[in-house]
Amino acid sequence: MATVKFKYKGEEKEVDISKIKKVWRVGKMISFTWDEGGGKTGRGAVSEKDAPKELLQMLEKQ
């Protein structure tokens, strides 16, 4: 499965696309949330040019 790689608060992170729940556009950035388990929700953002095609497809479906 595809993953999204991004930096959050200076830390490199990687999230499996299948865990992503919500995707939206903020200017030229793609923001998203995912389920971290245990009732926690993670947040992240990646530039439109660095976003994997699967993430962009999720954005178009909404």
Rank of each mutant, 00 (worst) to 15 (best):
K40T: 12
A45C: 14
W34E: 00
W24E: 03
D50F: 08
S47W: 05
P52H: 04
W34N: 01
P52T: 04
S31G: 06
K19W: 12
Y8I: 03
L59R: 03
A2L: 06
V46T: 06
V23Y: 11
D50N: 06
G42I: 06
I20E: 00
T41Y: 13
R25H: 05
E14T: 09
T41M: 15
T33Q: 08
L55P: 00
A51Y: 02
R25S: 06
F6G: 01
K9V: 02
V15M: 05
T33W: 05
F6R: 00
G39H: 05
G27V: 06
K7Q: 05
V23E: 00
E11C: 15
V15H: 01
G27R: 10
T3S: 05
D50C: 14
I20C: 05
V4N: 00
G37T: 13
K9G: 06
D35Q: 12
W24V: 03
E54V: 08
K28I: 06
I30D: 00
E36I: 09
L59H: 05
R25D: 03
G42L: 14
E12D: 10
F32L: 05
K53A: 04
K61E: 10
D16G: 07
Y8F: 04
L55M: 08
L56S: 10
I20A: 01
K19L: 14
I30A: 02
V46G: 01
I20Y: 00
E48R: 06
M1Y: 10
K13G: 02
E11T: 07
G37P: 06
V46N: 02
E60D: 07
K28V: 08
E48L: 06
A2N: 09
G37C: 15
K22Y: 15
S47K: 08
E54Y: 04
K9E: 06
M1S: 13
T33H: 12
A45V: 14
K5F: 02
K49N: 10
R25G: 06
E14P: 00
I17H: 02
K61W: 09
K49L: 10
P52Q: 03
T33K: 15
E54M: 07
K28M: 08
K22G: 14
E12T: 07
E12I: 12
E12W: 14
M58A: 11
G44A: 14
L59Y: 10
W24S: 03
G44W: 14
V4W: 01
E54N: 04
E60N: 14
I17Q: 03
G37N: 06
F32K: 00
K7A: 04
G27W: 08
K49S: 05
W24I: 03
K19F: 13
L56N: 06
T41W: 15
Q62W: 04
E48C: 15
K5D: 01
E36R: 07
M58Y: 07
G27K: 09
A51S: 07
Y8D: 06
D16L: 13
R25P: 03
K13T: 05
V23W: 06
E12M: 15
K9H: 14
G37Q: 10
S18P: 04
G38C: 15
K28A: 04
S47T: 09
T41F: 13
L55T: 01
A2P: 11
V15E: 02
T3K: 10
L56A: 08
G37Y: 11
R43L: 14
Q62Y: 03
A45K: 04
T3W: 02
A51Q: 03
G39Y: 10
K7N: 08
E60L: 10
K22N: 12
K13D: 01
A2Q: 06
E11P: 00
K53T: 13
L55S: 00
K40M: 12
F32N: 00
G38M: 06
F6Q: 01
T3Q: 03
K9Q: 11
E48H: 05
A51M: 08
A2E: 05
F6V: 04
I20R: 00
I30C: 06
A45Y: 15
K13V: 10
F32Q: 00
V4R: 00
I17G: 02
D50V: 06
K13Y: 12
Y8C: 13
Q57M: 14
E11I: 10
D50K: 04
L59N: 03
D16H: 09
L56E: 06
R25W: 07
A45N: 14
M1R: 04
M58R: 06
T3G: 02
S31H: 09
M1W: 12
G44C: 11
A45W: 14
V23R: 01
G42Q: 15
M58I: 11
G37D: 11
G39T: 09
I20D: 00
T33L: 05
K40V: 13
E54A: 06
T41A: 08
G38I: 07
A45S: 10
E60I: 12
F6D: 01
S31N: 08
G39F: 07
V26W: 07
I17W: 01
M29Y: 08
A51H: 02
K28H: 05
K7L: 11
K22W: 15
K22M: 14
W24M: 08
K49Q: 09
G38D: 11
V26C: 15
M29V: 13
K53G: 14
W24Q: 04
I30M: 08
E48K: 09
T33M: 07
G38N: 07
F6N: 01
F6H: 01
K49G: 08
T41R: 06
K5N: 02
V15K: 01
G10H: 03
I17S: 03
